[in-house]
């Protein structure tokens, strides 16, 4: 019997034991969401664990009813616990009081820390991009063009067969977006509008693309910074991240 079947069995028959089994998970999530973010003091951790356990016991029948087995029960419960933590933050309307615990790796030299943090952020950005599913290519293409990151041959190979316009014209616009560093923002929007209208068979104006890009950049910044805010990304630092991300992922994985 797999771990998950054992857990599901406990959920049905003995939710108390399941919660005891998940105590480590509860503790880790509380540490990361409520203590490390500075909303609660470390000495409050035991009380927080008690509160979450009590709420989980109360929620056990609904978890039992709603869990459909598509993921591990422990992941499902982690999502529930995360919601409970978010509820606590909202209810108290507290501001972070302090940063109590720095990540484990701060004791090591700067190079390692920097590399780990950069890798973590690049990984997070990649996962955010995955959430855009069918819009991922469009978003990445717009971000690259907007932030003047060089377009890749994979971008060209993806777009070229789908374009209905004259190939020479497409090449000219694509090349302009990729190589011409002197393009103004309006020229970028105009070029993007021509390509995306052709790709999506629509007739949007460049202002619509401008608004869409601005909304999406805002979204990406919110997702990168987290809630409660744990980073301070703005357009400038996003550009640096994009440079690193696309140089690392020069071959696009398209879905």
């Amino acid at each position: 019997m797999s771990h998950n079947s054992e857990d599901t069995f406990l959920l049905h028959h003995d939710p108390g034991s399941l919660i005891v089994k998940y105590l480590d998970v509860i503790s880790i999530i509380i540490q990361k969401r409520l203590i490390n973010t500075g909303y609660f003091l470390p000495e409050e951790k035991e009380d927080l664990i008690q509160t979450v356990c009590k709420q989980l016991i109360e929620k056990a029948p609904s978890i039992n009813k709603n869990y459909n087995g598509s993921s591990l029960l422990i992941t499902y419960c982690s999502s529930v616990i995360n919601n409970l933590c978010n509820g606590m933050i909202r209810e108290l309307k507290k501001q972070p009081v302090a940063i109590h615990q720095l990540p484990d790796y701060v004791e090591y030299d700067g190079y390692i820390v920097e590399r780990l943090l950069v890798n973590e952020t690049i990984d997070k950005f990649g996962k955010i991009m995955r959430l855009y599913h069918n819009k991922r290519f469009k978003l990445e293409f717009c971000l690259k063009s907007y932030f003047r990151v060089r377009l890749s041959s994979a971008d060209y190979e993806y777009l070229a067969p789908k374009m209905q316009m004259d190939p020479a014209r497409f090449f000219e616009i694509f090349n302009d977006l990729s190589e011409n560093q002197k393009l103004t923002k309006n020229e970028i929007y105009n070029n993007l509008t021509i390509i995306l209208n052709d790709l999506e068979h629509v007739n949007n104006c460049s202002d619509a693309i401008r608004k869409w890009i601005n909304v999406k950049i805002g979204e990406v910044l919110v997702l990168l910074n987290g809630n409660p805010k744990s980073s301070c990304f703005d357009e400038e630092t996003l550009q640096i991240l994009l440079d690193k991300y696309f140089s690392k992922n020069s071959i696009l994985i398209l879905h």
């Binding site: 797999s2 998950n4 992941t75 995360n82 959430l131 979204e219 987290g226």
Partner: peptide
């Protein structure tokens, strides 16, 4: 999206999720 990224950040390095 925010909810998924939050949960991912909580669990991505935890072996009780990664390894199973």
């Amino acid at each position: 999206k925010q909810h998924i990224i939050e949960t991912y950040e909580l669990l991505k390095n935890e072996e009780f999720v990664v390894h199973p």
